[in-house]
Each structure stands twice: as structure tokens, then as C-alpha cells.
């Protein structure tokens, strides 16, 4: 008697729990759907307001195309310490290397037309610079034999680079297939990496480096673009009295984002 009652009770509980679980499941699915729709609406509204504000601000910037860029760079610092003094000595034979060292970079680029006339590009890249350091002057600590500096340049930098270039096609190829362009414009590097302990002492390096860029770009039937840029530091990247000029070559490769995604 008890057994049959217990069995009925168990069956009933199972049926009720299954029904309520199903209802809960349905409820949570509809909640999820509601949240996704809400999320999509929010993303869409952000996108449309961004597009509107972009359109209003950059009304003359048309035919924008996003691309991904990456490549290698070769950098060199030329350092003039002038009358800088510190308690620290660096034997120049260990550091003085008049060479450009290789680094790498990657980022995004926007190409378009300004007022339907001028081709331009905006470039935003993360750069890992590894630089050779060339010291133009030295100090002596007599009677010790050798050339010294009171400043040791940092050789590694991580920077965020923003560049704006104007492009001009050089008409030497069939422009429908291949395009060779000359580019020029300013660029800014924001130093993201911390200074080494040697330079924390003097806080020698600026946060922002300003450069002037020139380069050549070869567009192969819009499949990809190869380019070579030269960036010349326009201001010293170190604080007075140390004058440091950073310059670099960039060899890069660019492909349209729409071709990849």
C-alpha cells in the first residue's frame, strides 16, 4: 500500500519537475533571446551614431578602406650627450654601434580620398623597436684608458605609432593593374615601454617622438601592397642637453581587411 503510494508520489514529482524544468528552460531561452536582441540593438545604435559622427567630422574623407599592415623595421639612434653629467659611466666600446637593428610592427591602416582629389592614408601601428646606438661624443676618465659616456641610450622601445600620409601615384605602370605611389607626411610615436633603470635615473626619454615620413608603395592589382617607408625623427627623443635622433626604415606588407574577413 505504502509502496504504491510512494511510487505514485515519485511519478507525480518527476512529471511536475520535468514540466517546471521545461518551463524554466523556455523562460531562460526567451530571456537570452531578449538580451541578445537588446545587445544587438545597443551595438547597432553605437555603430550608427559612430557612423553619423564619423560622417559629420570626416565629411571630405571618402572611399575609406581598412587594411591590416605588418612588417619589419630597422632603427638607429644618433646620440649627442653634450655637457650631460651623471655619476654613471658607460664604456662606449661596449655600446657604440653605428648600425640599424631590426624590429617589427603591425597594425591597421585606412586609405581613402580627401575631397575626391587627394589620396591619403592613416596608419596606426604597434612597433617593437630595437635600435643601434651611435654616440657622437665621448668623455674621458683619466687615467683610465677608454672612451666613456655618462648616458646610455635605451635600445628597446614599444611604441604606438600614428601616421597620416598623402599619396601621389607615380605614373610608370599601367595604373589599372599596378600602382606605384610616393607617400609623405608626419607621424607620432607614443612610447609605451618603460625606460630602463639607467634612464629612470635621468628620466631622459620623452613620451612622444615626432617624425617626418617618406616612402614608396607598390599596389599589386589591389591584392596586396608592399611598401618601404623612411621615418626621420624631427625632434630629439631625449630631454636637453642630450640630443637623440631616432630614424628608421620600414619594410611592410598591407592587405585589405575585407579580403581577410
Amino acid at each position: 500500500m505504502y509502496k504504491s503510494l510512494l511510487l505514485v508520489f515519485l511519478i507525480n514529482s518527476f512529471i511536475f519537475s520535468t514540466v517546471s524544468f521545461g518551463q524554466r528552460n523556455k523562460q531562460s531561452a526567451s530571456d537570452k533571446e531578449y538580451l541578445i536582441q537588446k545587445e544587438n540593438r545597443t551595438i547597432k545604435s553605437i555603430k550608427s551614431s559612430f557612423k553619423k559622427s564619423w560622417g559629420r567630422t570626416f565629411i571630405n574623407f571618402t572611399k575609406n578602406e581598412f587594411s591590416l599592415v605588418s612588417g619589419i623595421n630597422f632603427s638607429r639612434q644618433v646620440i649627442k650627450t653634450s655637457n650631460y653629467n651623471s655619476n654613471f659611466n658607460y664604456l662606449l666600446s661596449d655600446f657604440n654601434k653605428n648600425v640599424a637593428k631590426p624590429g617589427f610592427y603591425g597594425g591597421i591602416r585606412i586609405d581613402g580620398m580627401y575631397k575626391q582629389k587627394h589620396s591619403y592614408s592613416f596608419l596606426f601601428t604597434l612597433n617593437k623597436l630595437s635600435t643601434g646606438t651611435y654616440y657622437k661624443d665621448h668623455k674621458d676618465i683619466k687615467p683610465i684608458v677608454g672612451e666613456f659616456s655618462n648616458f646610455k641610450g635605451d635600445e628597446q622601445f614599444l611604441t604606438l605609432n600614428a601616421a597620416s600620409h598623402l599619396k601621389k601615384i607615380i605614373p610608370i605602370f599601367n595604373a589599372a593593374k599596378y600602382k606605384l605611389s610616393f607617400v609623405a607626411g608626419p607621424s607620432f610615436d607614443l612610447r609605451l615601454s618603460e625606460a630602463s633603470i639607467d634612464n629612470k635615473v635621468s628620466s631622459a626619454y620623452h613620451k612622444v617622438f615626432i617624425n617626418g615620413d617618406i616612402g614608396l608603395e607598390f599596389d599589386n592589382q589591389q591584392f596586396y601592397t608592399l611598401f618601404i617607408h623612411y621615418q626621420q625623427g624631427l625632434t630629439s627623443i631625449t630631454k636637453s642637453p642630450i640630443k637623440t635622433n631616432l630614424n628608421r626604415f620600414e619594410l611592410g606588407f598591407m592587405i585589405k581587411a575585407s579580403d581577410l574577413f
Binding site: T57, N87, A162, K200, V201, S203, K207
Partner: peptide
């Protein structure tokens, strides 16, 4: 407009610099 856009980029960078703090390094020596 090109000049205005470049000015905006410069302004953005300046803001980034201002918000990035500069640590005092008295014990580094």
C-alpha cells in the same frame, strides 16, 4: 578639414600623454 583632423589626432595624443603618469625615481640611482 585635413588640418582639423590632424589637430584632433594631436589632441588625442596629448591627452594620452597627460593621463600617463610620470613616476618619481629618487631611489633609482
Amino acid at each position: 578639414n585635413l588640418i582639423s583632423s590632424i589637430s584632433k589626432s594631436v589632441l588625442l595624443f596629448t591627452t594620452l600623454i597627460l593621463i600617463s603618469c610620470n613616476k618619481d625615481s629618487t631611489n633609482d640611482e
